[in-house]
């Protein structure tokens, strides 16, 4: 503990498996692009996470692709991807001169497709792979890999075999027992889990009677989802030993602190960047101030520092 804490001397670094990040704040996949370099110094971030890529070219979904909701948004961007070759030629070189480690988010319609892509992006300059397993599994009637522990175990096992890079598995909140899914990922060799992707939702235009998204349904993100994803982060952090990265509705340093206290080792920020593009460096500065104010010499000491009431039957329905 610090006495007379100095903002400068706080150790902001965090450990995510074998990776050391200079601070715990990184973008969420699909909510970051080179354009942010116009707004702040990208070297300030803890890490970079790319938009999910696929092996083949994909167009993405029909328009409209986003809709605003109460304190949140729905998206059905899909995964427009220029394919692996364009990624290697255009995107990777952009990150080469930058310091924070690059995490490449990947997706595929089959477990073997995931493995192949993981192998192909295991390249110098890539620090870790984030498997976005919330996408439809063509071998399971299009249900997402991440809905069940079994399909999660299958895809993670193949991924683990395909790459020696740190493997992060991004879970979906659209499942009944996310802790069981996280355990399946851990037991098949995941180095970290990201909690979580978007919550499936819908909005309807009452003038036209049409869905507000071209794809009818889409993923809810932003402030509205924070209590749900925070709860899931807490449940997952209690269920696994590997690091948990919290992601859902984080818009300021307090939100990030909540996730750390719930057990996250690091956090990802998505939708908030659309509203305030400099929000990530602001959160980093805010976390530093928080540590100084509360006398934490090391930010990582916040992780899991939740003070729980003596008797809580975790997993029981509180309502």
């Amino acid at each position: 503990m610090l006495t007379g804490a100095s903002v400068k001397n706080i150790d902001m670094s965090v450990q995510v498996g074998a990776l050391t990040l200079q601070n715990p704040v990184m973008p969420a996949s699909g909510t970051f692009a080179e354009g942010l370099a116009r707004v702040f110094d990208l070297n300030d971030l803890g890490a970079f996470v790319t938009k999910t890529i696929t092996h083949e070219k994909r167009q993405g979904n029909a328009l409209p692709r986003v809709a605003e909701t109460a304190e949140g948004m729905l998206n059905s961007i899909g995964i427009p991807s220029k394919g692996l070759d364009a990624f290697l030629a255009d995107v990777l070189p952009f990150y080469a001169p930058l310091c924070p480690p690059l995490i490449v988010s990947i997706s595929a319609p089959t477990a073997d497709g995931f493995a192949r892509l993981a192998r192909d992006v295991s390249l110098p300059g890539v620090a870790a792979i984030e498997a976005n397993i919330s996408c439809p599994n063509l071998e399971a009637d299009g249900r997402a890999f991440a809905v069940s522990p079994e399909t999660t175990a299958q895809v993670v096992a193949k991924l683990r075999y395909a790459t020696s890079l740190p493997l992060w598995v991004k879970l979906s909140p659209n499942t009944t027992d996310i802790a069981a899914v996280a355990r399946a990922a851990e037991s098949e060799g995941a180095d970290a889990v990201v909690v979580a992707n978007t919550i499936l939702g819908m909005a309807i235009d009452t003038e036209t009677f049409k869905p507000r998204l071209g794809n009818v349904m889409g993923g809810l993100s932003g402030a509205a989802v924070k209590p749900i994803i925070l709860r899931m982060t807490y449940q997952v952090a209690r269920a696994v030993k590997i690091p948990v990265i919290g992601c859902g509705g984080i818009g300021n340093a307090e939100d990030a602190v909540e996730y750390l206290l719930a057990g996250a080792a690091a956090v990802q920020v998505g939708t908030a960047t659309f509203l305030h593009p400099a929000v990530m460096p602001e959160i980093i500065a805010g976390l530093r101030d928080f540590c100084a104010r509360r006398g934490f010499a090391r930010l990582s000491d916040l992780s899991g520092a939740l003070r729980e009431p003596a008797e809580v039957a975790v997993g029981e329905n509180a309502a």
Partner: peptide, 25 residues
């Protein structure tokens, strides 16, 4: 076009351009 981020991050504002048969978003 409808926009969310305005900075090229979200891909919600795409439109087709170029070749009518194989437009680029």
């Amino acid at each position: 076009q409808q926009m969310a981020c305005g900075l090229g991050m979200c891909f919600c504002c795409v439109r087709p351009f170029g070749d009518a048969a194989a437009p680029e978003h």
